[in-house]
Design a protein around this nucleic acid. Structure first.
Length: 887
DNA sequence: TATATGACG
DNA sequence: CTTCGCGTCATATAC
């Protein structure tokens, strides 16, 4: 059998897997915590060589085990090798499965190494007239290179190869491929753990082999060599040299049972591959398979979509009770409060219709669908949909299924806001991602073609429906239906209403502060330049580092990746050593306020109403908290007086109104007292005792609260917070500036005094290890695949997360529940007061002055009864003419 | 695009 | 023996 289409690819399986394992350092694991990096890398390598060499035949050879004929000849062979990490061994079987799905033969032979299988097959194939390519990460195999056999050795990563032909070997090493065995005979191999001739390294070996051509010839002529240390060593180590040559020689006559015919490539088994990729969570590869198949199927799945262009077209819209309705409104940009509304699509059972003209939604037939209290609508993101429709004067009434929200509840890790990508996470590939269809960054543009654009939107409505049953079933299995139906789904609408309401900003006040701060910054800057003796960019940590640590020779406390750290913690330690430090600290503080809060805020005030309309992200955090963007209203300064002034610019939207705010007192510690069931902690909360003083009394062994000093209370407070976050003695020591032993004593004493907390900490980590996730009181989940990691850092982090998430997440559950009930309470009492902001444990309202007394009663009542814990919740309220004055 | 810094709970 | 408490977002600069 000859011909140019017969090319045999021989892959050194073990070597490539090891290579992939160490080359791909990213933490890749599937949903069960199984490591997948080596499989991933192997797959990349395989695709790359299959494309490059397009072989008709392929064989992947593996080592059969540790024992081989080489270990029989020499017991210490490869004896120095570390045990293969379990993160890697667990991947071997799956690589073999991958090969099977690819239609590629894999083979191992007891007593022989993969190298020998490759050597033997290469010889057979060459004799049969094949072209042969060997793929390996091991240079030793280059000894197999001939005119017909090329050896590709991985260079960097797993897909970059260096091709060794005989000519290339000659050029690189100065010897022929077969002579590589002779080189190794003389120099030995430290990684395979066998010696050669004492004192002979690569240089001498090459020189000798060039001169004598082989080890055998060298020893035949050894007598003629003139007396030297080298000659003595060669004589002494002759046995070693011949043993090494035997070990180094790759066998070409191993009793291999596969024939060349067996190595012929078989068709790829798509079903098996899909099954494997699903188990491995290889989303991207699944998407590739799907795209490939879709391409082949010649787009037969194109939906029939009615494209509506005018009011007359609406006569085709028909809805009957019980029909399924899915709806999508496309917003061209992130900020759905302002970005253009680009089009919409409906799905009613199997009828799809779409349009670019969003004003058609205002017409009766469509408006009725969305505003009906009895027609449930399925959407992707109900909050965005509600806000967008609100801009058209339409009120979305009945959301049934919200794909984004449900997906987030099922797994809050990697939840894309791009529906196509999110669908892929659930193994659904019929929807192109927005990023792919629209492009990203500067190149982003909606398709000009109506059929393409409307077809895409219609496809979105289909994706929502296609995923609905599957996701709702999973939700049910997780016991998360109430979390969705009672909390997150109604909360989306509450948040939409808060965002739409917006917060009035006093821009005059901000501009006044801007010029005041500007002057002050200029003064400080001048002073700093004088003290530094030169001008430089104060905002550059790099340039500042040079001034402080090189020019002024201040001691270096901490380094960063790029150079000296100039963080506040460092500067504080340098205080008093140079007057410049205080000025730098003042400058930092002020410029932060100026750029982020004053100028940043001014940029996002809507000119139409003088308000900021933040967006609360409901599907982002791992714990269940909200986040706030554009602007972030959850990190407006409060701790330092100068920064707190910014809050003077947050004002009520109507004259005679006030800002009213209520916050939960110690909610996280109360949640800890609840979930841990610790009696001592619970008692303190029931007695409404100062919790930090209580902790101080216990860890310092004080009976009388009057005897607790301010410093003891401060330290106790740090311990309390540390416990919530999953404490370490090191962390606490850092925080309090005490010794590690002292910190350790604090923690031990704490846990002795709060045995329920101690038990909780043990049990929650055990729970996470068993189930792979932790839960909040309302069944919000967080998966922790790293909890079983052998990497200390990753595992410790997962353990701390296991402690912290149920606490932080349950607190989030509580305030979310309160927010839904709050909106009802305000409405049912006919109050004008409006809920405007949520800052994790705090709700902020605006209200007419005369409603304040009622709010002082109603708001805390709703908040402290939102969720019943074993201990009471406590709420504190305040109000004033501005957010600043509400204190 | 990544890093350093600093604002919040 | 390791590690250096959790969750966010915005800005400016360096790469």
């Amino acid at each position: 059998m000859t011909g140019k289409n017969t090319r045999l690819l021989l892959v050194d399986g073990n070597s490539i897997i090891f290579r992939a394992f160490y080359a791909i350092r990213t933490q890749l694991t599937n949903h069960d915590g199984l490591h997948t990096n080596a499989i991933y890398g192997f797959k990349l390598m395989l695709d790359s060589v299959l494309t490059t060499y397009d072989p008709s035949h392929v064989l992947v050879a593996f080592d059969a085990g540790k024992k081989t004929f080489r270990t029989e000849k020499y017991a210490a062979y490869k004896g120095q090798r570390d045990k293969t990490p379990s993160e890697l061994t667990e991947q071997f079987g799956l690589v073999k499965e991958l090969l099977q799905a690819y239609g590629i033969t894999s083979y191992d032979l007891p007593n022989y190494e993969a190298d020998d299988i490759i050597g033997t097959m290469a010889a057979q194939a060459e004799a049969a007239g094949y072209d042969v390519t060997v793929v390996t990460g091991d240079r030793d195999l280059t000894q197999l290179a001939t005119d017909k056999v090329t050896v590709a050795v991985t260079k960097s990563g797993v897909t970059q190869m260096e091709n060794y032909t005989p000519a290339y070997v000659q050029e690189k090493l100065g010897v022929t491929p077969r002579q590589i065995i002779d080189l190794k005979a003389l120099q030995g191999d430290s990684s395979d753990n066998y010696p050669g001739v004492t004192g002979v390294g690569p240089k001498t070996a090459v020189k000798l082999i060039k001169q004598y051509e082989s080890v055998e010839a060298l020893y035949e002529n050894l007598a003629t060599m003139k007396k030297s240390k080298l000659k003595e060593h060669l004589e002494q180590d002759q046995a070693n040299a011949f043993l090494a040559k035997d070990l180094a020689r790759i066998r070409q006559d191993a009793p291999v049972a596969v024939t060349l015919a067996d190595t012929q490539r078989q068709p790829v088994d798509i079903d098996q591959l899909v099954d494997l990729y699903q188990r491995l969570d290889f989303k991207r590869f699944l998407a590739e398979i799907h795209a490939d198949q879709a391409g082949r199927a010649d787009k037969k799945s194109q939906l029939a979509v009615d494209i509506l262009t005018n009011v007359q077209d609406l006569t085709t819209v028909e809805y009957h009770d019980g029909d399924n309705l899915a709806f999508v409104i496309e917003v061209d940009g992130d900020n759905y409060h302002r970005a253009p509304l680009a089009g919409f699509a409906f799905k009613i059972n199997d009828h799809y219709f779409a349009s670019r003209d969003v004003t058609l939604l205002q017409e009766k037939p469509l408006r009725n669908l969305l505003e009906s209290a009895t027609i449930p609508v399925d959407v992707f993101d109900s909050k965005q949909t509600y806000v967008a429709l609100n801009r058209l004067g339409i009120t979305l009434r009945q959301v049934n299924f919200d794909l984004l929200l449900v997906s987030y509840l099922l797994n809050n890790a990697d939840n894309s806001k791009d529906m196509g990508k999110l669908a892929q996470e659930h193994n659904y590939f019929e929807l192109t991602s927005d990023e792919k269809l629209y492009g990203k960054g500067a190149k982003r543009a909606l398709p000009a073609d109506d059929a393409v654009f409307c077809g895409h939107l219609a496809q979105k409505t289909k994706a929502i429906h296609d995923l609905e049953q599957q996701l709702l079933t999973e939700l049910q299995q997780n016991e998360q239906v109430p979390l969705y139906v009672d909390i997150e789904r109604p909360l989306a609408i509450v948040l939409a209403q808060m965002e739409i309401a917006g917060v009035r900003v006093d821009t005059d006040k901000l501009m006044e502060m801007q010029s005041k701060f500007g002057e002050r910054l200029a003064e400080i800057q001048t002073a700093i330049y004088a003290e530094a003796g030169e001008e430089f960019n104060l905002n550059s940590p790099k340039q500042l580092g040079v001034i402080l640590f090189e020019k002024l020779k201040l001691p270096v406390i901490k380094k960063t990746k790029r150079g000296y750290s100039t963080a506040v913690s460092v500067l504080e330690k340098l205080r008093g050593m140079a007057p410049i430090i205080d000025n730098i600290l003042a400058y930092r503080q002020l410029s932060k306020l100026q750029s982020t809060y004053i100028e940043g805020l001014l940029k996002v005030v809507a000119p139409e109403d003088g308000k900021v309309h933040t967006r609360y992200t409901q599907t982002l955090t791992a714990t269940g908290r909200l986040s706030s963007v554009d602007p972030n209203l959850q990190n407006i300064p409060v701790r330092l007086e100068e920064g707190r002034q910014i809050r003077q610019a947050f004002v009520p939207s109507q004259p005679g109104w006030e800002i009213f705010s209520s916050d939960y007192s110690q909610i996280e510690l109360r949640v800890l007292a609840h979930v841990s069931g610790d009696h001592n902690m619970q008692q303190a909360f029931r007695d409404d005792f100062d919790i930090h003083t209580n902790t101080a009394m216990r860890i310092f062994g004080i009976d009388d609260p009057e005897q607790v000093t301010a410093n003891q209370r401060r330290q106790a407070k740090a311990v309390n917070f540390g416990i919530v976050y999953g404490i370490s003695d090191f962390g606490l020591a850092q925080n309090l500036g005490i010794s590690r032993q002292q910190a350790k004593r604090f923690i031990t004493t704490y846990l002795e005094n709060f045995p329920g907390v101690e038990r909780y900490m043990r049990e929650i980590v055990e729970y996470a290890r068993e189930k792979g996730y932790v839960e909040t009181i309302l069944h919000r989940r967080r998966y922790l695949p790293d909890i079983k990691s052998k990497n200390f850092n990753l595992r410790s982090f997962a353990e701390r997360t296991a402690l912290n998430t149920p606490i932080q997440g349950s607190a989030a559950d509580i305030i979310k529940t309160a927010m839904i009930q709050m909106q009802d309470a305000l409405q049912s009492r006919g109050l004008q007061a409006r809920m405007l902001m949520q800052v994790h444990d705090e709700l902020i309202f605006e209200a007419p002055q005369e409603e304040i007394p009622l709010l002082e009663k109603v708001v805390p009542e709703v908040m402290d009864s939102a969720v019943q814990l074993d201990i009471p919740l406590k709420v504190e309220s305040k109000h004033g003419a501005t957010w600043f004055a509400a204190k």
